[in-house]
Design a protein around this nucleic acid. Sequence first.
DNA 1: TTGTACGCGTTATCAC
DNA 2: GTGATAACGCGTACAA
Lengths: 345, 345
Amino acid sequence: MSRSRPTIHDVAREARASIATVSRALNGGVVSAAALARIETAVARLGYRRNDVARGLVTGRSGLVGVVVPDLMGPLYAQMARGIEDVLDERGMHAMLVTDHLEPAAERRAIELLRGRQVDGLVLIGSRLPADALRAAVAGTPVAHVQRDGPDDGDPQVRLDDAAGVRAAVRHLLDAGHRRIGHIAGTRRDGLERRDAYLAAMAEAGLEPGPVEAGEFTEEGGEAAAERLLGQRDVTAVFCASDRMAVGLLHAARRRGLAVPDDVSVVGFDDLTWARYLHPPLTTVRQPGRDMGRAAARLVLESPFDAAVPILRVAPTLVVRGSSGPPSDPHVTGPAARAGAPSRR
Amino acid sequence: MSRSRPTIHDVAREARASIATVSRALNGGVVSAAALARIETAVARLGYRRNDVARGLVTGRSGLVGVVVPDLMGPLYAQMARGIEDVLDERGMHAMLVTDHLEPAAERRAIELLRGRQVDGLVLIGSRLPADALRAAVAGTPVAHVQRDGPDDGDPQVRLDDAAGVRAAVRHLLDAGHRRIGHIAGTRRDGLERRDAYLAAMAEAGLEPGPVEAGEFTEEGGEAAAERLLGQRDVTAVFCASDRMAVGLLHAARRRGLAVPDDVSVVGFDDLTWARYLHPPLTTVRQPGRDMGRAAARLVLESPFDAAVPILRVAPTLVVRGSSGPPSDPHVTGPAARAGAPSRR
DNA sequence: TTGTACGCGTTATCAC
DNA sequence: GTGATAACGCGTACAA
């Protein structure tokens, strides 16, 4: 009874047609109405389902784009994956996700696996592979990066406009009246870019940069950095390179009896899903993960056409919530004192 | 220059061997050392990579198990996916994830897609498909469920021991001295099971069940239910069917000026990654997502062998943190008053 | 130990 | 409009 899965041959026999006709019928080719009807009933009766593996073998395309993502646990990566799905869906394609848990070796294996499956393209999120290793691994398969952690080569890439986000965050703090603003920096590429942007923003405002402490992109990393930072005098606000670090900072502040935002304002980065549910709700820079995923998917699928859009910057938006406010003892008398900073547009 | 991908033929020619020999060499068959060496260098020179699609066509297996997951955003689902990966890795297999965003229609499409890719098995997380629709959709492919939302049929399944988790949570509250314990219930299957377990646990302690309010499994759902619940007098503790709902409750409590845990103790369910970073850190029932994923993966792969393990219960653990404590104005004088409740083991 | 030849399920190219 | 039939890239009898 448990015959193996019906093939196109079975359908052909059942419908008294040739496999060629069945194939045409299934793919919207020219078929007589009578034949089409017979084939459709045969398909229904047999429960036939096309074998996409065999199909892929002959067409040379799989309808799959491989996505290698650091891990599934982060809401941001999930959003990016969702964005990729969005545009793939429109084209009747699908994503195949593989995780690399931030290990370059695993990333290589992931790419190998995906290429073995004949994916039509590759979206690499936060890739750490050096340019040459990457080029060898993908060997011709179209690639698009999202927030690449390694150095750039010519591959198309979508990145957050980290600098713009940082500027918005720092300006928000300046506008509130803060003058002594610390920074908790991340050690990955985007963390460093954010740190540099922070330094630039402070310089632009004619201010000394506040203390900067670096750490892992985690709650613990943020907490450890915060311990070192909060010891410093005068700091009335801290800008963190990620929400997870900001959570660590919140903890450290609470332990020291510092009220947020009254004693110290906190601004994060990413706007992870739970940022709004913290206490106080976190002011942060929202990273539009889904949009970034969408953009990346479009880049892979269209990379042959326009060869010259290597890097696409998407704009973040500042989300002001309860963790930031005016300093309780401002060193200057208020926002009015902040002249000279050029107002955009 | 950009010749298409090298095939096994190319390797054979380059190594002056037949494709059969190359195939054997690649799959660990018996090959002379000399031939093996030539083949290996040829593979390296050409950058040959086996075409798993073609391979799957002839072997009849794909080395893939399809996983359909409600969404990627939830840390719990991510943990389950990770668990599945764990056991697949050991066997040199891989997971192919597809999301259904909680829509049964999308779930069906996801299963179709996966079956078209010749997956060797299917792990369905939180499936809502009716038994017959499911049976038709999978059509012979081995299936294992995780926390199935629809009714059971004979398919192997791993579920949390929801009742045990609820019992632990309620006992924790009883031990702390609470007598009037409310419940915020979820409307999905596991939500209802938890509600029933809550009612049973209260009855077992000889207590009237407290007020019960149901809502969506979200922060908003929890908040709305909490608004209704916190109006009731005497409630000194609330057990929530999920952490997300507990967050809503925390918000509602704060808005009403209720201190947690002093005015009201809160216990959640799931132990999502950020539960410990809430303020106060959330006491909750940890759902071992990764273990559940592992168990499910083993079930799919071994389902032909032991046909009679349809439902596997995994035990949750209570994680006590800051959101629960003794009532400020207990109706009884303390834990000592709680006699009669049987102590486990 | 090695090579030949067939088949896996499908699409595409022809004739008809 | 329809039906043979040759690929697609690989595994695996079977023969050598």
